[in-house]
Write a protein that binds this DNA or RNA. Structure first.
Length: 492
RNA sequence: CGGGAGGUAGUUCAGCCCGGUAGAAUACUUGGUUUGGGACCAAGGGGUCGCAGGUUCGAAUCCUGUCCUCCCGACCA
């Protein structure tokens, strides 16, 4: 056993780190808070990115790319947005190094190369994009403007965690401009549904769609919609957000358009994003103490085939069968890998692919060929079955679908069992401390109460679910009247 | 950013208290035997002990600074 994984029970945080590092998704780097995304992790991200990109394009969006740097004067234009991000910005102040006269062979910042105006490394791109949109929008005929960008952003976080919170991360950010408030709200909600669709149907990650409270809202937004997922330790993870920005950025950057009656008005905006954080959520939601468990639809490798043989003659027989099988699976669009490397024995490969979360493993040995069968092992349940070679491709194809569905069902079952109603403060605390998960409770609607609960319980309001049931009650904290329950949880 | 722990071979770690030529396991290389759940035997290569200063005849070991990581907290669209 060369790669041991800390169990979830023993140390959940370490378990997560072990999976990411030993599963080959990412590695630490020489830069504080920044990670290297390794080929296996990047392949996963590429699959996620490709699916999302198609979804964005199918909903009428196009891709563009805006600069990494934002001049400070633009950055500070929308006050709330600037204030919200001010504490976690990397700032470029100089543009040149020179040899250090006191330390031969070392470099120093050239004090003469100070920038007139500092450049902020984007923590998000609203500022640079809205400054650009100003020149692109004059008339209602220029609207709606539906643009997405795939990019990296930097947020100088105090405490980082692989994928879940890194100082630099990869994401997409959609930035749209609309002629009416209604249209912008429809766009905001539409993209939230796209995210939920992606999370549930591709990542097998059940999410709750909702709206953030004023406290938790994106800096500069009128409304922040979100999808919230639940991890296996009972903590919530914000998996994606979609913001209705009102006219805040249009006003800050003076983006006006003429409507059909030649009236000038500020445009209405949205922005929405998901990031590599989703990978962290994927890992935490599905995996077990043996390693990663990846949903088939986005797994870099869906099926791995391991040969078991003695001598070249047996290997050749197996090769012949596997080559046919591989071709069949590929023709069904299945990502299959034949690992006939001689450096590791079968047992080692079994353990390795379990660690990496490959959904289906097929073992083919001489014994199997004599019976025209193979051994099929599924990663999600660890069940092994002997399957006839006749019709194997369709069997595998169906199995992948079943695994995808099973992973979603399992996660959803866990999530549903961890939404608990609390009617008193004691119940509320008991659930948070012992059962964990989401707590559905009445709240009086004030920021003061929300802050006080956060202070005392370390839990935040994750969201007010969309189409939330209206129900008269009393706030668990203040005892004041409330018209609906909201979802609380401790969160990442 | 506060508290705690840590950084020594590719990896996981011992050695440090009490200064005196750098260790184990695993991985790697070569040869052989093996192959249905992380193989075995033999031989071999590999580390300026995170980095920079200081103390000392001599520093992985003592002192100072600094960078990085992990855990807890604060912070976190």
């Amino acid at each position: 056993m060369s790669k041991e994984i800390t169990s979830r029970e023993q140390d959940y945080s370490q378990w997560y780190n072990d999976l990411v590092l030993k599963g080959g998704l990412a590695d630490y780097s020489a830069v504080r808070g920044c990670m290297v995304i390794k080929p296996y992790g990047y392949a996963l991200w590429e699959n996620m990115r490709d699916v999302l990109d198609k979804m964005f394009k199918d909903t009428g969006h196009v891709n563009a790319y805006f600069p990494l740097f934002v001049p400070k004067s633009l950055f500070e234009a929308e006050e709330k947005n600037a204030e919200g991000f001010a504490k976690e910005c990397a700032i470029v102040t100089h543009y040149r190094l020179k040899n250090d006269p006191d330390k031969p062979g070392k470099l120093m910042v050239d004090p003469e190369a100070k920038l007139e105006e500092e450049l902020i490394v984007r923590p998000t791109s609203e500022a640079i994009i809205w400054n650009t949109y100003k020149g692109w929008i004059q008339s209602y005929r220029d609207l709606p403007l539906l643009i997405n960008q795939w990019a990296n952003v930097v947020r100088w976080e105090m405490r980082t965690r692989l994928f879940l919170r890194t100082a630099e991360f990869l994401w997409q950010e959609g930035h749209t401009a609309h002629a009416t408030k209604e249209e912008a709200i429809i766009e905001t909600e539409k993209m939230l549904h796209v995210y939920a669709d992606f999370a549930e149907n591709w990542m097998a990650l059940p999410v709750i769609k909702g709206v953030k409270t004023a406290n938790e809202r994106f800096a500069g937004a009128e409304d922040t919609y979100c999808i919230e997922a639940l991890m296996q330790d009972g903590k919530a993870l914000q998996a994606g957000t979609s913001h209705f920005l009102g006219q805040n950025f249009a006003k800050a950057f003076d983006v006006k358009f003429s409507d059909k009656t030649n009236q000038l008005d500020y445009v209405w905006a949205t922005s929405w994003g998901v990031s590599t954080r989703l990978i962290g959520g994927l890992v935490m939601a599905h995996s077990d103490d043996q390693g990663l468990i990846l949903p088939p639809k986005i797994a870099p490798t869906q099926v791995v085939i391991v040969p078991i043989y003695k001598g070249d003659a047996e290997k050749e027989n197996i090769d012949a069968v596997v080559n046919t099988l591989t071709a069949e699976l590929k023709s069904l669009g299945i990502r299959v890998k034949y690992d006939d490397g001689e450096n590791q024995r079968p047992g080692w490969k079994f353990a390795e692919y379990e660690m990496k979360g490959v959904p289906v493993r097929i073992a083919v040995g001489t014994r199997d060929l004599a019976n025209q069968v193979v051994e099929v092992a599924r990663r999600d349940t660890k069940e092994k079955s002997t399957i006839s070679l006749d019709g194997i491709s369709n069997y595998i194809n169906n199995l992948l679908t079943e695994i995808q569905q099973n992973m979603f069902n399992k996660a959803k079952d866990y999530r549903d069992k961890h939404i608990t109603k609390a009617n008193t403060w004691d119940e509320f605390m008991d659930i948070l401390d012992n059962k964990t998960g989401f707590v559905s409770a009445h709240w009086d609607g004030t920021s003061e109460t929300e802050d006080a609960i956060k202070e005392k319980a370390k839990a935040t309001i994750r969201c007010i679910p969309l189409n939330n049931e209206q129900e008269a009650g009393t706030c668990i904290f203040s005892g004041k009247p409330s018209s609906q329950r909201v979802l609380f949880a401790r969160a990442y």
